[in-house]
Amino acid sequence: MTDRTHEGAPAVGELAVDTTTDHKGKVVRRIGSVVLMATLVGGRVWRAGADQVRPLTPVEIRAHVRATTHRARRTR
């Protein structure tokens, strides 16, 4: 079970989407009402309000995996 201390916001380690920017990432840290997220493909970390972050749905995760796989295959 995950620890969602801020009204359903994802816990550290969960995949999530920042609803203000529609950027998807992994929750790397929570500091009060602020969530630090890292991009799914590596790169920058950004801050989002815990009330502006929601877990990725299984459908969104599958779509991301498909798109990443497609891009990887095209670059070969």
Score class of each variant (00 low, 15 high):
residue 65 V to A: 12
residue 69 T to M: 09
residue 17 V to R: 01
residue 52 Q to G: 03
residue 35 V to M: 04
residue 59 V to T: 13
residue 72 A to F: 09
residue 75 T to I: 12
residue 35 V to N: 03
residue 72 A to Q: 14
residue 44 R to D: 11
residue 40 L to Y: 00
residue 64 H to P: 02
residue 41 V to W: 05
residue 4 R to F: 03
residue 34 V to F: 06
residue 33 S to P: 13
residue 33 S to I: 08
residue 47 R to Y: 04
residue 73 R to A: 15
residue 62 R to Q: 10
residue 41 V to F: 05
residue 24 K to W: 05
residue 41 V to G: 15
residue 64 H to K: 07
residue 48 A to R: 07
residue 76 R to H: 15
residue 9 A to L: 08
residue 58 P to E: 06
residue 53 V to H: 03
residue 55 P to D: 12
residue 49 G to C: 01
residue 27 V to H: 08
residue 37 M to V: 05
residue 24 K to N: 10
residue 38 A to Q: 10
residue 20 T to N: 09
residue 36 L to P: 00
residue 30 R to S: 08
residue 14 E to F: 04
residue 50 A to M: 01
residue 59 V to W: 04
residue 68 T to G: 14
residue 47 R to V: 07
residue 9 A to N: 05
residue 1 M to W: 07
residue 72 A to W: 07
residue 35 V to E: 02
residue 20 T to D: 08
residue 52 Q to Y: 06
residue 52 Q to P: 00
residue 21 T to C: 01
residue 15 L to D: 05
residue 30 R to K: 11
residue 13 G to N: 11
residue 30 R to M: 10
residue 7 E to V: 13
residue 52 Q to S: 10
residue 56 L to P: 01
residue 34 V to E: 09
residue 58 P to I: 07
residue 22 D to A: 14
residue 26 K to I: 12
residue 9 A to T: 12
residue 48 A to H: 03
residue 26 K to V: 15
residue 74 R to A: 15
residue 61 I to F: 00
residue 66 R to K: 13
residue 65 V to F: 04
residue 49 G to P: 04
residue 3 D to K: 14
residue 54 R to F: 02
residue 25 G to Q: 05
residue 9 A to I: 06
residue 20 T to R: 14
residue 45 V to F: 10
residue 57 T to E: 00
residue 56 L to K: 07
residue 64 H to L: 08
